[in-house]
């Protein structure tokens, strides 16, 4: 309960900071629209030449694009900005202020920076997803909806834990901003279902940079492609990584010496 209150506070703080720069809303909206044009344009060109791509029908891939934008929005809303700030705090020594607060420090650094305009991506992603599902005429049963929710939650947890572990490395290697570039470069591969890539790349996109769990698996859940094994694997990896990130954080914070000490 307390954590929800903290989360809400940071959300309000992010909103208050950004509402002073309202033009940023249009900047972000434009960027989101362009990203959508890029994705849907790519699909249009591909489906101009073929009816299905590796078994995926057009509307199913539009749903995948919706999830791609949605998850990208979730990452950019809170995970990535908070993690960047966290690494910056380690470098500058200002992490002191976080550790001193009477709340779980890992939780604080994970939710601290909220970029509210990224809500646009989330809303747009959801919109695209809903339109795609209507066009699919798919009867999404309770089981499928539930599987989608679980897969999305597992995917978000995996991406968060992945980021958290990489950011924690900043306790030892101070300069780590390149991690961001690696993640963003690889994330664009998630625009297409992971299953079309060669095996070694699938492995990389699943276990090295966990884009498969974040985008493809939830899309598989919605389009009735998800096997129970994959869902179970996603849940196991999510729980495992979350625990590992927690452990690694505790281990890393012991190495933190502060700036002025």
């Amino acid at each position: 309960m307390n954590q929800l209150r903290i989360l809400w506070t940071f959300f309000r703080l992010g909103a208050m900071n950004e509402l002073a720069y309202r033009v940023n809303f249009f900047t972000q909206l434009f960027q989101a629209v362009m990203s959508l044009v890029l994705s849907l344009g790519g699909l249009a060109v591909v489906f101009n030449q073929t009816d299905t791509l590796a078994g995926w029908r057009p509307a199913e891939l539009v749903a995948l694009v919706g999830i791609y934008i949605l998850v990208g929005g979730l990452i950019n809303l809170m995970i990535q900005p908070s993690m960047q700030r966290f690494m910056e705090d380690i470098r500058m020594g200002t992490l002191d202020f976080m550790i001193l607060k009477p709340a779980d420090a890992q939780f604080l650094v994970s939710v601290r920076q909220v970029e509210i305009w990224k809500l646009i991506d989330i809303i747009m992603g959801l919109g695209v997803l809903v339109i795609a599902l209507v066009r699919l005429g798919a009867q999404i049963g309770m089981a499928q909806a539930l599987a989608f929710g679980v897969a999305l939650l597992a995917g978000a947890t995996i991406v968060y834990s992945f980021w958290m572990m990489l950011a924690t490395c900043a306790f030892w290697f101070v300069k780590t901003e390149n991690i961001l570039v690696i993640f963003q470069s690889m994330y664009q591969a998630g625009r297409w279902p992971i299953t079309i890539y060669p095996g070694w790349l699938q492995m990389m996109l699943t276990f090295l940079v966990p884009i498969a769990f974040a985008v493809t698996v939830p899309a598989q859940a919605l389009t009735g492609r998800l096997t129970n094994q994959t869902l179970l694997l996603a849940i196991l990896v999510a729980t495992g990584l979350f625990g590992a990130a927690r452990w690694f954080w505790r281990f890393g914070i012991r190495y933190y010496a502060g700036a002025s000490a």
Binding site: T50, T52, L53, V181, M186, Q188
Partner: peptide, 27 residues
Amino acid sequence: SLAIWMIGRVIQPLVALVVWTTVARAR
């Protein structure tokens, strides 16, 4: 940093190549 920036510059043609190879096979 230069090396890491190159990841994105290799990934894009690779992704496009995979997509179009898949289409070619389907056709």
